[in-house]
Amino acid sequence: MSVKNKETIAAETEADMRQPEEASRRLEVLKTYKIFIGGKFPRTESGRYYVAQDEAGHKLANVCLSSRKDFREAVVAARTAFGDWGSRAAFNRGQILYRIAEMLEGRKLQFIDELVKQGAGQAAAGQEVEQSIDRLIYYAGWCDKFQQLFSSVNPVATSHFNFSVPEPTGVVSILAPQDSALLGLVSVIAPVIAGGNTCVVLGSYSKPLSAVTFAEVLSTSDVPGGVVNILTGKMEELAPYFADHMDVNALVYCGDDMEMKKLLQQKAALNLKRVVFYDHVDWMSANGQSPYLIADSQEIKTTWHPIENIGGAKAGY
């Protein structure tokens, strides 16, 4: 077999796929875009859908218009999954994130295709997919390292050993970027799950295909069901529930709508969710990835224990 460059392979593959279809006039099988809850792909319980269109107004697919009940189910799944995911060995989480990257790499063309359908240029789409894969690798590596970065052994003055370590905050609801359909999505999910949290994510409304297809990648990547749950639908409709659900510990919002921020902050106050806003983040840039983003959904726990050192011991108070 001769050495071929990427483009040649891609072109030939495309040709291979087209040829038999044309020859036999085989009808294309269309994908049903479903939501992703607890590792399964149900349709929205509401039965509602909306039509995702490309920029020219052509129909891309019928997409689930998720309801608050779907969100509720997703939170239950995320909470159930948290016990296991949050207490897994960090090394194991790292391997699973790496596995997601592997699966994404394998389905690169499908993602490029969908991004192009959703309005991206071919080159930009390729770049976005590759960067998404690399971003997963980046966070796969952080899974068992950020703890050391953000931990401390504290030199207290009493006869105690005292240390502080980050721990996942729990279930995180994420309102993913609207414009960056895949890279933005990956960039907000990865640091949250790398840190041991589970999440419920609302994908882009106008560009929903990547989110659903990414769910298929997750589903084949050893990610336990419920760790990532992905919904499609209207942000204005679902955001209040993302913010006020009493069993959600933190909320991520990617956007700069001041009214939306106000609403989220106010609703989140109901159970004092940690609220994280990523506005004006260029996910393509170096600022789009950082261990500090992992820290955004971590709690610091400090543990004390006496040391048998009579000389150093003083009264507690």
């Binding site: 006869s159 006496p306 040391i307 048998e308 011991a313 003083k314 009264a315 507690g316």
Partner: peptide, 15 residues
């Protein structure tokens, strides 16, 4: 017996 706890309690008594 936790040594540090004993020392703390004894110190408190001296107060």
């Amino acid at each position: 017996i936790d040594q540090v706890g004993v020392v703390e309690r004894a110190a408190r008594i001296t107060k």
